[in-house]
Amino acid sequence: MLNKLKVINGKLTDGEKPIRLFGLSTHGIAWYPEYICEESFAALKKEWRTNCVRITLYTDEFRGYCKDGNKQHLKELVEKGVNIAEKLDMYVIVDWHVLSDQDPMKYIDQAEEFFGDMSKRFAEKNNVIYEICNEPNNSGTWEKVTEYADRIIPLIRQNSPDALVITGTPNWSQDIHCALDRPFKWDNVMYSLHFYAATHKGTLRSRLERCVEAGLPVFINEFNLCEASGKGDIDHDESEAWREVIDRLDLSCICWCLSNSGDTCGVFAKDCTKLSGWTDDDLKNSGLIIKSWFSKFADEENDR
C-alpha cells in the first residue's frame, strides 16, 4: 500500500523519505477516454517504469466538465482511473484543467461541487493528489488563484485532511515566483511549473532554481520537449538542460501527453491505436526520449 504524500521542508516525501513522482498525463479524458484502462496504466508502470499518472479533466473546452460535457460520465472516468492506479500501486493526479477559462473563479461553483464529491469518494485513498487549477492565465492572477484556493482547499481538507494539493501559477504555470512571494496559508501544497523545452528556456529554469533553493515546493506536473503549442520540433539542447535541472533538484515531473494526437507532444504515433505493448516504432521521438528519462529516474528511486 502506498504511503500518504507529505511536503516536508519544501520537498515531497512519502511521509518518511524523499520521493520523486514521474509519469504521463492523459490528454483530455472526454476526447481520449480509451487510455483510462488497466491495460495502459499497467504498461506505463511496467514498461515505462513510472509511478504516477495524471488524469486531465478539461473545464471550459469542447465537452469540458463546465461546458457541454457529460458530468456523470467524466466523474466515472476519473474514479475509474483512480481505482486502477490504486490497484497498481501508482499515485494519481486529479487535474481540474483550467485553460481557456483563464480565471479559476469563473467556474467556482462547479469546482466546489466536483472537489467536494471527489474528496468524499477518495477520502480513504492514499494515492490521490488534487490538482485544483491547471494553468491560470491572463485574468487568472495570483490574487484570483488564492481566492479560489481558499474556497476549494477547505472542501478537500474536510474529507481528505492529509491529501496533497497542487495548484497552477499565473502565466500558464510559469510565474511560480508569485507563490514564493505570497504562498498559501495551507500546508501540504505544491506549486506547478510547466515547461515546453523549445519555448521555455534559461530564464524559466533560473526562476525555477531560485524558487526551489528558497524552499518553495515545486512540482513540474506538465512538460514536453517541443513548443508550448504542443507542436514543432524538439529542442534537444534545451531538453537536456531541463533534464539536468530536474535531476539535480530532484523534482517530480509529468509528461504531456498519453495519446496518439498528431501534435509532437502526443507520445504515440498517430496511427498507433494500441493501449499497451508499445514498441519503439509506436513512439514519436518525444516518447522515446521521455521513456528513457523515466527509466533513469526509476533507477535513481530504487537506489534511494
Rank of each mutant, 00 (worst) to 15 (best):
S119H: 02
P170C: 13
G202T: 15
N83R: 15
L204G: 05
W172Q: 04
S261A: 12
G287R: 04
E301D: 13
W31V: 07
E47F: 03
V53Y: 00
T167L: 10
V218R: 02
F22R: 13
S292E: 14
V218C: 03
I152V: 12
T13A: 12
D235C: 11
S192L: 11
K270I: 13
D235Y: 03
S286Y: 10
T50D: 00
K11F: 10
K4L: 10
L225G: 07
E300N: 14
I156E: 06
L251D: 04
I289W: 07
T279Q: 06
N224W: 00
R54K: 14
K274H: 03
K274I: 09
S295V: 09
C257F: 08
N9D: 15
N127Q: 07
Y91W: 06
S252Q: 07
E34V: 07
A85V: 01
Y196P: 01
T169K: 05
T59H: 08
H200D: 15
C257W: 07
S192H: 02
I129N: 08
I220D: 01
Y65P: 03
K144E: 14
C52H: 06
K185Y: 03
N9W: 09
I8T: 15
D109N: 14
V245T: 15
W293I: 12
D263H: 11
Y107T: 11
V145I: 14
N137M: 10
V82Q: 00
